[in-house]
Structures are given as structure tokens and as C-alpha cells.
């Protein structure tokens, strides 16, 4: 790991002022950054410690929405009583993430900003368009079993590895951001992540030095009946091969509202609007669930190694719908 300076500013303003400088990175839980820095995938020159400078609270606003402070630890959100009862897929997604040690360290903001990745990205012995733009992507013709099938480009097929954002995508969350000038903005979650296109090194629409302050998750009948399904290569402590967050509201046997997002298949949490549309207003039966789930792979671009994910997506959605409607 290369050397760096570590600043521990006393105020958010001081942190924000230091944020945009070249080679600077904010550090909160540090679990992703430290790991990547040890392999020289990330080479920060200045770390800016933001512990204590942003909210770490979990609360409900007067309109009933859930407010997650950017520095709330993964374990706190996962085990919070209101989250468990009113946004269960969020709790499930976090409890199926990483290990207990990492969940004690990782924060909400950091989990959202985990780098999209593949094995080549994490090994500096290989070229990678994310690490050194224009150097090429060995993953597309190479080992791609775990990589993306939707939203991918000729430059990058890495997947976003976090689970929590998949649940948030199915709950129409938004992000509260603060920029170095002190200005704040609210960004719909669906507009936060960028697709790789020809610039896979840029993963989000965060401006230089901008920080996530909080995540706002609306309360809804579908979120209350949400579930998270994660398919992995081993029983625990593993990224998803495919995951599905399903939020479902059924009244009188009819699907009133449904939100479906998937992980492990794209460079960002992927919303399945065509599957949602096929379910809307339909009877909540195994037949209509199956029919809608079969649309999951629409538009998929697969490699020789990861074509199986299309069928797995279909099955993960089906399982999610079964659980959410049970």
C-alpha cells in the first residue's frame, strides 16, 4: 500500500473543503477502500476521515419516511426494529451482506459507494478500463461467470456488489447530498449510479468532493411486504451471483403495486420495469408470477460464462414474489 496523509477534520465544512483536492478520498468504515488500497487498486494520497461529521442516526420523518444517516453502521440498520417491520428487504439485504465484523464497520454511505468490480479490476497485473481508462477489458473474453448481463458496455461488465442498494432501488429511495460549497440536493436513487458506457471509471453522479448525507426511504404498503433473495456460490460471506428485492402490495388477490430490483447482474442495482408492468393489476397467482418473471432477461447481453444468469434471474424473482405474497 502506498503512503498517504490522514486528515481528521473537526467540522464538515473543513472536510468538504479538502474533498475536491487531487488524490483525496473520504474514509468512513474504510472496509472497501482499505482493501483496494492494499492491492494498489486505489492509490489515495490524502485520506479525509469523516467519522462524526455526518449523521449516523436512523429515524422516521413526520411523513413516515425512513431517514438513514450516511454514517449509520450496516449492523444498526439491519437490526433496527422499524426497518425490520416496515422495510424488511432492507434488513434482509444487509444481514446477507459481508460478515458480522464488516457489518460492524461498514456504513450506509460507504456501502452505496462500494466500487463496481471484477477479479481483473482487483488485480493490478491485468489491464482494466476502470483502473486505467482505455487499457482494455480482459473480463469480456476472459473469466466472466460472475459479471454483468444488463447495462454493460464494450468497455466494462463489472457488477455493483452491494446488497442494500438493491433493496433501496425497489423502494424508490432518494439520496441527500452535500457539496463543497455547502449546497445540498436530493437525488432519486435511480439517477445516482451511472452506466459504464465508455467511461467505466466514473460510477456515480457525485460531483467532486460531494458527500452522501442521508438516504430517504418512503414508507409504502409494498415496502412493508418486501423480501430479498440472494443466490451465492457459498452459504455466507459472499457477493451475490444474482439477487432480487421484491416489494409487493396485493389487495383482494390482485397486484396493486410491485417493485423489483436485482443485484449481481449489472453495474448498478437494476430495476425490472418490464416485469413490474406485466404484474401490475394482474392476479397474484403462480401463473402470472411465472409469466412476468420470464421477462427478466429482456435486453441481456451475455458472455459464454454468464448466460446462465438470465434463468437464475427469473427464478430469483419468482422466489421473491412467492415470499412477498406468502
Amino acid at each position: 500500500m502506498e503512503g498517504f496523509t490522514l486528515a481528521q477534520p473537526r467540522s464538515l465544512d473543513d472536510a468538504l473543503a479538502a474533498g475536491p483536492q487531487a488524490g483525496a478520498k473520504y474514509i468512513a468504515g474504510g472496509t472497501d477502500l482499505m482493501q483496494l488500497a492494499k492491492d494498489n487498486v486505489e492509490t489515495p494520497h490524502h485520506l479525509i476521515d469523516i467519522e462524526g461529521l455526518l449523521p449516523d442516526t436512523i429515524s422516521t420523518a413526520t411523513d413516515g419516511s425512513l431517514q438513514l444517516g450516511a454514517l449509520a453502521r450496516m449492523v444498526e440498520v439491519a437490526t433496527h426494529a422499524d426497518v425490520r417491520s416496515s422495510w424488511p428487504a432492507l434488513s434482509e439485504a444487509l444481514l446477507l451482506s459481508a460478515s458480522p465484523q464488516i457489518r460492524n464497520m461498514g456504513t450506509v454511505g460507504g456501502n452505496l459507494l462500494q466500487r463496481t468490480r471484477c477479479g481483473y479490476f482487483r488485480d493490478v497485473g491485468f489491464s482494466c478500463n476502470k483502473r486505467s481508462p482505455g487499457s482494455g477489458c480482459p473480463a469480456i473474453p476472459g473469466e466472466s461467470r460472475g459479471l454483468g448481463v444488463l447495462g454493460v458496455s464494450d468497455h466494462c461488465i463489472a457488477t455493483h456488489p452491494s446488497d442494500m442498494p438493491v433493496a433501496l432501488m425497489a423502494m424508490d429511495a432518494s439520496l441527500q447530498l452535500v457539496s463543497p460549497g455547502g449546497g445540498t440536493r436530493l437525488v432519486p436513487f435511480a439517477e445516482f449510479y451511472r452506466l459504464p458506457g465508455s467511461t467505466p471509471e466514473i460510477e456515480t453522479n457525485l460531483l467532486p468532493g460531494e458527500l452522501i448525507v442521508a438516504v430517504v426511504v418512503p414508507r409504502s404498503a409494498s415496502a412493508r411486504r418486501s423480501r430479498y433473495v440472494k443466490v451465492r456460490d457459498r452459504a455466507s460471506f459472499e457477493f451475490a451471483v444474482v439477487s432480487a428485492a421484491v416489494a409487493l402490495e396485493v389487495t383482494d388477490g390482485t397486484v396493486r403495486n410491485v417493485r423489483i430490483a436485482m443485484g449481481g447482474v449489472a453495474p448498478r442495482p437494476w430495476r425490472l420495469s418490464q416485469v413490474e408492468a406485466a404484474l401490475q393489476g394482474r392476479p397474484a397467482t403462480p401463473e402470472s408470477f411465472q409469466e412476468a418473471a420470464s421477462l427478466a432477461g429482456e435486453g441481456a447481453v451475455t458472455t459464454k460464462d454468464n448466460a446462465f444468469k438470465v434463468k437464475l434471474m427469473e427464478r430469483a424473482i419468482l422466489r421473491g414474489l412467492q415470499l412477498a405474497s406468502a
Partner: peptide, 19 residues
């Protein structure tokens, strides 16, 4: 490398000593 910090288990390899 698991240790406890303020009573919680964490991995000390990904924790900066200064922090």
C-alpha cells in the same frame, strides 16, 4: 485479525491504527 473496538468485533487489518 478480529479484535473488539468499543465492544464490537471488527477486522483490525482494515482498520487504520490512527483511527
Amino acid at each position: 485479525c478480529t479484535v473488539h473496538i468499543d465492544g464490537r468485533r471488527v477486522v483490525s487489518c482494515l482498520t487504520l491504527a490512527a483511527r
